[in-house]
Simulated scan of single mutants.
Amino acid sequence: MNFKSISPYFKFTNHQRKGIFSLFIIIIALQFFYFFSDFNQAEKNCPEKQEWLAFQSEIDSLKAIKYNEKPKVYLFNPNFISDYKGYKLGMSIQEIDRLFAYRKENKYVNSPEEFQKVTKISDSLLNVISPYFKFPNWAQNKKTFKTYTAKSFSKKENFTVLDINEASKEDFMKINGVGEGLSTRILNQKESLEAFVSMEQMSDVWGLSSEVIDELKKHFRVLSSPKIKKIPINDASLKELALFPYFRYALAKQIVTYRSMNGDIRNIEDLINIKGFPVEKANIIGLYLEF
């Protein structure tokens, strides 16, 4: 090989040699810096981020075991079963239609016996599905409620009935047993919900006795359809759901988990299947939600 032909490429001036030497020194310095430096930056602690990561981890773990578990049957109110729910329970189309016709008359079944009488299901099917029936507390104490009502309303009284959503603190204080404190609680409860949709919600106000609630029902009604900004149940965040008085954080978390694992919530029946949902208040809660 003729080295003379390539030797000119290796001849450098004094200035060039100094430049090459300086570049060599810089490369070595950068290698030492890279070798001895720790480029791992500690992430800033963010409580909200940690909480959401933990919550997402919990959802992922539930998804992982979902397909290995046997389907669970939760307690439900048979008044609100859908076509699909009835089919899954083993009911025929005719039996489901009988229940729907009964409900269209604004009637409710309050016991397994009534459910069988309306739907005409067999004894064997009733024995299988009735352990999962969950009726409101007032339905279980039906006899006591009727007797009390007869005594309370035996006398006819003449008074002006006011719209509960238009009443003032002074209007409430005219009722025996309602002072300034209880009147304020009623108004605060209405404000948290935007409006009352039923007089049955008086039982949700802390401190009201049954006698006072009966008096309130005599003097107040929901006389007009209140304007309520309904909660989009499938789009609302955990924080938004937790602010709703009937949900709070624990149930709101269950709803978000249910959405993540099963998709959109289609109706109140889906919500009833969620653990911890107040079934006895389903009719009222449904009026505040948008599906």
Rank of each mutant, 00 (worst) to 15 (best):
G286M: 10
R259K: 14
A150Q: 15
V73E: 12
E180R: 07
Q254L: 12
A195M: 05
D83S: 09
V222R: 06
N176R: 09
Q41E: 12
L75E: 08
P245Y: 08
F115S: 00
A101K: 15
I129M: 02
Y249S: 08
I59M: 02
M261K: 03
K134L: 07
F135T: 01
S154H: 08
K174V: 12
T184C: 04
Y108S: 00
I96Q: 01
E157H: 11
L182P: 15
Y258L: 07
K190S: 06
P47Y: 02
E200F: 00
L241S: 06
K4Q: 14
S5W: 06
M199A: 03
V161P: 11
K11Q: 07
N262D: 08
F244M: 12
K275Y: 14
S37G: 01
Y34F: 10
T160F: 10
V212M: 05
V73T: 15
D163N: 15
Y102K: 02
F33M: 01
E114L: 00
E269K: 01
S209R: 08
I6S: 13
S61P: 02
A195T: 02
Y258Q: 11
S260E: 15
N234W: 15
V178W: 04
P232N: 11
L223W: 01
E191N: 07
S183Y: 02
D163P: 12
F133W: 03
P136M: 05
L62G: 06
I96L: 09
F21P: 02
K229M: 10
A282Y: 06
G86I: 15
K63P: 06
E114S: 04
P136E: 01
F291V: 13
P71C: 06
P71S: 04
M173C: 08
I65M: 11
L271N: 07
W206K: 11
N188I: 02
I285W: 06
S124W: 01
Q94E: 11
D60T: 02
F21G: 02
G263L: 13
S111C: 00
R17V: 06
H15N: 15
Y87I: 10
K230T: 13
S7C: 09
L289R: 09
F277R: 08
I59E: 04
V128S: 03
A282D: 08
I233G: 00
L243Q: 15
K11D: 03
S198C: 04
K85S: 08
D214N: 09
L241M: 14
K143H: 05
N188V: 01
F55Y: 01
L238E: 12
L243M: 10
K88W: 09
A167Y: 11
A195Y: 00
V212K: 05
Y132I: 03
V279L: 14
N79Q: 09
P136R: 01
A150W: 07
E170S: 13
N2Y: 04
F39Y: 15
T257A: 10
L53G: 05
V178K: 03
N77E: 12
D235V: 10
L287W: 03
S237Q: 14
S192P: 00
K142R: 10
L187W: 00
I272C: 07
V279Y: 10
L271Q: 06
F33V: 04
E58N: 09
V222C: 11
E43V: 13
F244I: 13
I93M: 11
F291K: 14
K134H: 00
K190G: 08
S82R: 13
